[in-house]
Amino acid sequence: MMLKIDNLHARVDGKDILKGLDLEVAPGEVHAIMGPNGSGKSTLGHVLAGRPGYQHTAGSAMLLGQDLLALETEERAHLGLFLAFQYPVEIPGVSNMEFLKAAVDSSREARGEKPLDSVSFMKRARAICEEVDLDQAFLKRGVNEGFSGGEKKRNELMQMMLLEPKLCILDETDSGLDIDALQRVAEGVNAMRDGKRAFVLITHYQRLLNYIEPDHVHVLSGGRIVRSGDKSLAHELEEKGYSWLEDVA
């Protein structure tokens, strides 16, 4: 199993947000997690990535058989976890290039590999820049500094492609994107599907799933998964909205 979450409980600011979440993701699968605002979708991503302030209170989350929640944030990344942020962070003064190189080298080092030499890295970074349709000038700018919403999301995608993670969690990557940018991001994700890498797409809308076809769709409400199904569930949600879930939950 790639990811196995069992009865996960988590608290933010003294408030219980996740209340017994179960989820299993096998290698190669794409899972979509949908749900109304405040249902705990983003919290799930943050808890798995170890964000400060997101306190795990019960249950477990295993990535490739390892206790994810016992690891430092960077160790989770080394193990193969990648969270594409809903709101990527702007870091003026730290160039995108040095950031990307530091990320790639750290992961390689954790795997016992030598750091990439600068030339090979630059070549690879430039190629991926082109693939996600970001101007190369973005490599020299501060991390996400002054990037538009779409540029930030494509920068997340670029990091994902460079780091080649085993499990990618995309937190509302579709929010704030116009249809062209959305298609571009979807193409990038689809290109990374290789039968082994797994994806968890956290999204409020069904729209993204027109471009990235999920194997499983889950509905998160009140901190638990209340329904699971195939992609037709997403269409059902689109038609009915989320209000009917309250009865289920």
Partner: peptide
Amino acid sequence: HYLRTRGVSRAEAEVMLSYGFVNE
């Protein structure tokens, strides 16, 4: 946290942020 989610160690992330603060 953002830097660490990309695999950068806390120690290196702190150095990068300090340097970045005055680098401009």
